[in-house]
């Protein structure tokens, strides 16, 4: 009888939100994967990113040329020169080698601040959102102060004060990305906390930590994570931007932003080579953006 009743219920029920019925039981994540599998743009972008990351990591295996080796006689060779397929830079270093090796620092400087901010900002935001009240007030008003700076300005201010260097730029960018991550985390957590299933969990006598672990995190990490993947694109641009200003890594390290900076003097001699590092930044950034969009619609997250 119960089954018959259940079937009857299904048909006779126009009420209630999201009466999406499926024959087979599928978890949320398997449905997300299913949607992603049918999204060529996201898949392509993910593929390109994997390629860029792998080639940066395994650079020595891919490219025999030394990215530091200068050559006074082979400076600013054009694209397509024998031995230097993408030409050479202003000190005669091979561009392919530098572009591939350059990914190491650029990707590190682009992703690490977002990962840091995800951890710190996420923790702050979820705490503020879950606890509410005075704790929320204290955390969020402090965040507001940092949020009151345009991000480029804050990044330059902090790394300008700290001085140039890889670590300093990572610290500066981390500080830049904590406020937006914290804000999104707080907003998402606050909205989830108000839902009845959290109340029901409290009503079952669970302690705060258990509720956060079982009921809050599972519902907020997705949106926060998606937001962060979108930030990586900004972070890559900003990180290379800092190097472009001379605030990031120092020569002779290969890094896309720094390479743009040093090659800038050579645009009158060899404009195509000078623009190459920027294409890498652009490619990485647009792939992260498109992938973030794809994930967002597959996970059905509204931010």
């Amino acid at each position: 009888m119960a089954d018959a009743a259940a079937n009857f219920v299904r048909i006779a029920e126009p009420l209630g939100p999201a009466t999406e019925l499926s024959v087979k039981s599928r978890s949320y994540w398997s449905s997300v994967l299913g949607k992603l599998r049918r999204d060529p743009v996201t898949l392509t972008c993910a593929g390109i990113l994997v390629l860029i990351f792998l080639s940066a990591i395994f650079a020595p295996l891919i490219i025999p040329a030394d990215p530091y080796k200068t050559s006074m006689i082979r400076r600013l060779q054009a694209v397509g020169s024998p031995g230097n397929l993408l030409g050479t830079d202003e000190l005669g270093r091979d561009m392919i080698a530098r572009l591939i090796y350059g990914g190491r620092l650029s990707l590190l400087m682009g992703t690490l601040p977002v990962i840091n901010a995800l951890l710190i900002g996420g923790l702050l935001g979820v705490t503020a959102g879950f606890l509410g009240g005075r704790v929320n007030m204290l955390i969020m008003r402090t965040i507001d102060v940092f949020y009151a700076f345009p991000s480029v300005l804050l990044a330059i201010a902090i790394s300008g004060a700290l001085g140039a260097g890889l670590m300093n730029s990572i610290v500066a960018l981390t500080i830049v990305f904590i406020p937006p991550v914290a804000r999104v985390s707080e907003a998402v957590t606050t909205s989830v906390r108000g839902l009845d299933f959290v109340e029901a969990a409290r009503a079952s006598g669970a302690r705060s930590w258990t509720i956060i672990r079982v009921h809050i995190l599972g519902n907020v990490l997705g949106p926060i994570f998606i937001y962060a993947t979108g930030l990586i694109s900004v972070s890559i641009i900003l990180a290379s931007g800092l190097s472009f200003l001379g605030l990031g890594v120092k020569p002779p390290e290969p890094e896309w932003g720094l390479m743009l900076n040093t090659l800038r003097q050579s645009i009158w001699v060899n404009p195509v080579v000078a623009a190459l590092p920027g294409t890498m930044i652009f490619l990485t950034s647009i792939c992260f953006n498109l992938m973030s969009d794809g994930l967002r619609s597959a996970m059905d997250v509204k931010l």
Partner: peptide, 23 residues
Amino acid sequence: AVTGISVPHYWLGMVLVIIFSVE
């Protein structure tokens, strides 16, 4: 839209200089 938010604008500036000033 996606190009606008993904392009490193300092690089775009360089590219524009290359096209309109250099070339």
